[in-house]
Design a protein around this nucleic acid. Structure first.
Lengths: 332, 332
DNA sequence: TCCATTTACTAAACCGGTTTAATAAAACAA
DNA sequence: TTGTTTTATTAAACCGGTTTAGTAAATGGA
């Protein structure tokens, strides 16, 4: 039961491996291989259940037909949904998908990218944990096909698929205002990334436009490496004052989910007094208290665009512009 | 900016590629390469930012250092959590992870497995959509390293990582009985797979042990390809009778989540009269009505075991026995 | 001093494909 | 009949690594 190779097929069919390669790649007619020879080769290949070795093929062609998908956490449903769609679309195009989790760790991200490049993966789609594109670009390389999403980085010269952060934050904040809230906090992970800045600006804009105004003390930033404790502190801080915060805008779903858990577990008495708004939707928001207004990102569109843009870079060296998609606000 | 290969490094360092290969693989001392030469080679490699081509390496070694993870739907949090842990563990062992979704489609599963084998992926971890191992084994091949989880197949001669289906179903059913329910239905996807059969038997056993007894009309089976309509029918059937069902045991989280949605959307008046129990946990169960008692599978353990068992097959041709893990029941 | 061993290094084969450039034989045109 | 084109096929190089089997020079021992 030794593996059967193209050489073996050539030997069994009594022709050269060149001829076998041509025929099995459907180039038999083009290369003037006689019908008789073609049939013979196909028959021998079928009989022996020949399957081409993609590693050898990749080495020869300089192309692995693999794309990498790198995210902080594939078990986050937001990334999971995109992963699923990416795999579905990629598979149709003949690509397989390699996934990896960075856990928001820039060093791990670096190692993954280097590993993926060493594996000759044709291109990557990533939601980067990095704060700075210049660091990244030296790893990724100027010419390595890549598409970014979710996390925008300054000075990025690669396509980025994002959402209308400013407008979405504005809308979410306005909806909280309309519910009658006067003290609306904002909770973010890192505040210096452009899309986070835009979200914060949208929040501020909505508050400024209303008569409420911005209170910088209500803007909290949490370390992505210790979200649990961060949220606990922020929530206790908010509810325990004498003039408690009544609404919070969270800049991603992990923060919101953790806050829901914290309120239900530690401060159940405040459950019904609080209103939440959140970037990224989660199924549990349909049923949780505090009620959550959420901004659903169009994950299928993001995935489709990402794969198409990436393949266009890989196949045609054709780099698209980034694109900004609209969220759908889900009120509850 | 041409890619730099081991040949180039050899040329620049003025030695043979053999020597370079030895040194860069840390076998310099073992192979009696002089310190001077070793340093020279390492310096040249560093200066030129040399990264070995893993495709070439794989071809030569006959090993791709890649494992495949094949599931019905990677965006299902149950699979997502396992995927994350698998990637984390695999990465530590030097393996990358290729993922694919079958969408419960046996044909797609077949194609994926063949594609993964053609790509020389060293082994696969899968939750199969197939109903029959004999069909699968002709695709997978007797000797191809593989570990199954979640979906047990009859006649399987590969390790399977499962849970104590019978006891878990028994416990979930007993908890519903303890809540005072007399009419407890069961909703399943396909009923002929052994682990499903075990779950059904556990359910029946609990009912038989109590004075309630089994009513076969309360056991429903839903097509995995049209869960939405299936659940809608089952729920309407249950609540609209004159003696309505008051509790339901669901055999996976997709069914439960869909049922929660259906009840909340179409039959909100029954929300508080119903009690659910479910295999697989979901975050939303913490907040949803009807309240759900769920059986949490130890996803980290499953992932760790799966990777370790697979690597032991790959590296040592050492096939483990399957294993049965315990679930944790979460009452709410 | 001579033979055996160790040190330091390399040529070449191999993994399994793709592709270029070449060739012999057949068909065709003049 | 001869030169040209077309048909049918292939040898060999290549992709970039690993590894086996070797060699020449230096060292060591008697």
């Amino acid at each position: 039961m030794t593996k059967i190779s193209i050489n073996k097929i050539a030997e069994l069919a009594g022709v050269s491996k060149t001829t076998v390669s041509f025929v099995l790649n459907g180039r038999g007619d083009e290369k003037n291989i006689s019908q008789k020879t073609q049939e013979k080769i196909l028959a021998v290949a079928r009989e022996n259940n020949y399957k081409a070795n993609y590693i050898a093929r990749s080495l020869s062609l300089g192309k692995s037909f693999t794309i990498g998908f790198i995210v902080p956490d594939i078990s986050n449903p937001f990334f999971g949904k995109i992963a699923k769609q990416i795999e579905t679309v990629a598979e149709k195009k003949g690509y397989s998908v390699m996934v990896a989790n960075t856990n928001e760790d820039v060093l791990k991200e670096t190692n993954i990218i280097e590993s993926f490049k060493a594996r000759q993966i044709d291109g990557i789609i990533l939601a980067s944990a990095s704060k700075n594109y210049n660091q990244l670009t030296s790893i990724i390389g100027k010419d390595y096909p890549s598409v970014f999403f979710d996390r925008f980085l300054p000075n990025m010269n690669k396509p980025f698929i994002g959402i209308n952060n400013f407008e979405t934050a504005q809308q979410l904040t306005e909806l909280l205002i309309q519910k009658g809230h006067k003290k609306i906090a904002l909770v973010s992970i890192t505040s210096y990334l452009p899309n986070i800045v835009n979200r914060i600006n949208g929040y501020k804009d909505a508050l400024t436009t209303s008569e409420i105004g911005v209170n910088e003390d209500l803007i909290f930033e949490i370390e992505p490496t210790d979200i649990k404790n961060g949220i606990k502190q922020v929530i206790s801080n908010m509810v325990e004052g004498e003039n408690p915060t009544t609404a919070i805008l969270f800049l991603n779903n992990v923060l919101t989910a953790e806050a829901i858990w914290t309120v239900n577990t530690l401060y159940p008495e405040y459950k019904d007094q609080l209103d939440f708004a959140s970037f990224d939707n989660l199924d549990l928001f349909d049923y949780s208290t505090p009620r959550v207004i959420s901004a659903l990102q169009p994950s299928e569109d993001i995935a489709n665009l990402a794969v198409n843009m990436l393949c266009d870079q890989i196949d045609n060296n054709n780099q698209h512009e980034g694109i900004q998609l609209d969220t759908s606000i889900i009120t509850r």
